[in-house]
Structures are given as C-alpha cells and as structure tokens.
Amino acid sequence: MTLLSFNDVDLSFSRYDGLLTAREIPILKRISFSLKCGEVVALIGASGGGKSLIAHALFGILPPNALIRGDIRFDGQRVDDGSRPSLLGRRMALVPQSISHLDPLARCFQQLRWAARRAGLRVNDAALVAMLTHFGLDARAAQAFPHQLSGGMARRMLMAIATVGNPDLIVADEPTSGLDDDNAAIVLSKLKSMADAGKGVLLITHSLATALAYADSVCLVRQGRVEGVERAEAFEGCGQGLSSDYARALWHALPQNGFRVTGDA
C-alpha cells in the first residue's frame, strides 16, 4: 500500500529584488516519488540539493517565503495545512537533522512526555520508561538535560520522541551525522526494524554506502530534481543494473569502487 507520495511537487522561495519587486527562485522541480508501508526509501544527493527541504515541505515547516505547488499525499489523503494537525506526530513524525532540536532547558523525559501529550496519548511514565529502554536509554539518560547526553544517545532520544505517538511514517533527516560507526549502526538498525514492523521509513542521507546497507530503494536528488529511483540491490558490480547515469556516477565515486569523478559533480 502506498503510504506517501510526492507528485510533481515544485518549491520556490520568493526573494526581494530591490525594494518592491519579488522574484521567485525555484528550488525543487517536479519532485515525484512514493513510499510503501514496510519499506525504507533513501533520499540521496549532494548537500545543497534540496533533500531536507523535501522533508520540510511534507511537515509544513518551510520558511514563510516558500511557495509550494503540486500534490503530496499521505495514505491517500492530501497533505496540507488542513490535514497536518491530525497527521503530525500522530501518523507521521520527523527525526530532525540536528540534535540542537532538543530543548536545552528541559530534561529529556519531560520532552518525551510533551511529545506523547502532543500526539494525544494518555500514557503513564512507566510506559515511557519502557519505551526509552527499547532505545537503549536508561533512567539516567531520561533525567539528563540534552547537553549531558552523548551524540548517539541524543539521536536515540530524538527518535524516541519522534516515535512515541506510534506513527506510520518516520522521516529521519541525516540520522547518523556526527555518530561513529557503532552508534550509526544502532540508529539505522532501529529504523530498519520499524520498517520490518510495517512502518514506512524515509531516510535522508548524503551517504550512499549507508543507504545501500539499509534501504530497499534509493531516490536520487540532484539540484532540486529527482534524477532517478533505483533498487538498492542494483548498486553492484560495475553498476550495469542502474537506470540513471547519476546513480552510476555516484557508485563509481565511492572510495571502495573507483573513486572516480565522472560527469559533472
């Protein structure tokens, strides 16, 4: 079942050109992709290519000068300002890119409680503690302020907060940035296990090697466009199974492959 789909979504920013005239600067062009339940889809691309903006467009957290056109659907329903309140934190949740999204002045457990309340849940503290244990976080981590957590623990805390409302779709924006390999593997396996349990996972990352180990399919974004959607297992050998040139170029640029710059980077 298709859980999320972007259909020809355009995004532009309006910027003042002089005092009175505003100019529209196109950022995302005709973005289309879809994601099914039980699937991990990776959005891959260069930094500055617009990957995070795709997530921000979905969650309605773009800056006020953003103009968005096209159709975003979640579970058949159009995602817009009218439908978002019943979806956000309840049916779909974002694990933000930076751990600075945690409130520095509140203890982590309090932030988890707030998230549960925002999702409309009446859960007791014991259930929340059990949930943290599930993410490998103990009572000390719960009582800590965000700055007292290591990078890996803070990231797991963000995931716990995002998933407390038991959403059907989890969007994780660069969930492994700043983490060492062991912690990255913990976070990614967690996301993978959510997909195995029937959720949809959209994994935004710049690391092709990371994505291939965990994703079912890979959507390649470059300069605001979708350059192709590939099955993860097509990235093998000399890339003969890949349909787009960009995918092949990325594959050959990996240090473990050719480390070659082909086409225009």
């Binding site: 930094s47 640029a253 070659r260 980077a265």
Partner: peptide
C-alpha cells in the same frame, strides 16, 4: 564525511 560520494571524490 558529510559530502556525497561525487563531491568527495572531486
């Protein structure tokens, strides 16, 4: 570490 493979190789 934070760059895509093509930018990294370049």
């Amino acid at each position: 570490a934070q760059l895509d493979p093509l930018t990294q190789a370049q």
